[in-house]
Amino acid sequence: MLDHIPPERPGRGRLAHAPKQHPPVPARRTGILLANLGTPDGTDYWSMRRYLAEFLSDRRVIEWPAWIWQPILQGIVLTRRPFSSGAAYRGIWNTERDESPLLTITRRQTAALAARMAARHGDRVMVEFCMRYGNPSTGSVIRRMQAAGCDRILFFPLYPQYAAATTATANDQAFRALMTLRWQPALRTVPAYHDHPAYVAALAASVERAYAGLETRPTALVASYHGLPQSYFAKGDPYHCHCQKTSRLLAGRLGWDRAAIHTTFQSRFGPEEWLQPYTVDYVAKLAREGHERIAVMAPGFASDCVETLEEINGEIREAFEHAGGRDFHYIPCLNDDAAHLDMIEAIVRSEAQGWLDEAPAEAAAPETAPA
């Protein structure tokens, strides 16, 4: 929860035209809710187990029948994986705040967007963030926003490229939250923004900034996206196409030949065939082909996290160096960079048209007929 947003706003109370028994009603607000993947509460075994159990029990993530998957998950995966995942998180953990970098960065993104909204709309717009898995949960934040007067919420999954296992499951969770409310706010969802000009421009600026700081220019730029089972793509998931389009548009924005950006996929899980080429194998191939210096970026992640800070800068870097590569440069995610915030704000203003421009109303409660 953002520290600068009080649980009750000035003006909250009983309406002048309402009967004495009418409960207090907050003034109307529009809500902006940024949604990210999630994070464990800690790196210990039980924190990791709770997080992984929620994540890997999502039928959008693992589409196997529950009668097949759940015995494997409960009996094998959740007895072993919390140890290795906990070790990976400990290597990147924000010890000062005792939280994951993804949580730290998402909070900063939210605070920056809230400041921008407040400068133009005062306290009529409430900006919050939630996580699909872990805390703060989607349901708890939507309920809090509704209680604070948000009768309209723009739900913004921070996934540039659409996938059922990311964008769709985030939206699912938001609508599940609405099912628990007596008085539901109106809800809009932000679509994929893999080809949004401001997103592509922000990516290009991050590459140009990174390259400007290097003494020797890399001979290859690898755009590593999170992987997805090949079977999901075969069923009609557009994720692979969105990733390819992002890379193509990025090359065009940079003024490069399309072949100058190598699109790969990371973070495989399980025995299925996933989208290829696999990043860890591909960077080793580049090294063997004579590319001594490469740069790697992760356009599909809105915030640096364990997949970027530990997997790319750890396992994938090691694969490149072990194959003979010398200079591996990781380009950070957009995080809370000003260009990224410009993009998020531009999308919010576009998708919330008619909501942000309305004059403030006295309260969210309807007129109550006299007794």
Rank of each mutant, 00 (worst) to 15 (best):
R59A: 09
E273N: 01
P157M: 13
S267E: 10
L78A: 10
F83W: 07
R293F: 06
P277N: 08
G213A: 13
R268H: 13
V207H: 00
N313H: 09
E358F: 05
N135E: 10
H329L: 03
Q109E: 12
M126L: 13
L15K: 13
Q266R: 07
Y193K: 11
T95I: 14
G270L: 03
S267I: 11
A359L: 12
H291F: 07
F129K: 05
R268F: 13
I32P: 05
V190T: 06
R49E: 09
G252N: 10
R217P: 09
V200R: 07
A201P: 06
A287W: 07
A87D: 11
F269W: 03
W46N: 07
M1G: 13
Q173L: 10
R116P: 04
Q173A: 14
A295V: 00
D98C: 10
G38M: 15
N171H: 14
I261K: 08
V61G: 09
T169Q: 05
E321N: 12
L341H: 08
I316M: 05
M117Y: 07
H4V: 15
I32W: 03
E315H: 12
P299D: 01
L56Y: 15
L203Y: 02
G122T: 07
N94Q: 13
R60P: 02
T167C: 09
W93K: 15
R81W: 05
D41N: 15
A201G: 09
E208L: 14
R60G: 03
K235A: 09
E315N: 10
E208A: 14
A119W: 13
G139R: 13
R29E: 10
R248M: 05
H194P: 00
P238H: 00
E358C: 09
W67F: 15
D41Q: 14
E54V: 05
A371H: 11
Y232L: 04
L214S: 11
L254I: 03
D3W: 12
Q353A: 01
W93D: 02
M131Q: 01
Y199C: 12
Q184M: 11
P277E: 06
P271R: 05
L103I: 11
H242E: 00
I312V: 03
D44T: 08
Y162C: 01
E289G: 00
T43L: 08
Q70G: 01
D123T: 04
G236Y: 00
V125S: 04
N94A: 13
E63F: 12
M297I: 01
Q230S: 02
T219G: 12
E289A: 06
A260Q: 08
I32S: 11
T189H: 07
D342P: 06
E318W: 05
M117K: 10
R248W: 02
R326M: 06
D58Y: 03
P101L: 01
E128Q: 13
G86L: 10
A66L: 12
D337V: 01
E292T: 03
L356M: 03
A53H: 06
A147V: 11
Q146E: 14
Q230V: 02
L78M: 08
Y278N: 02
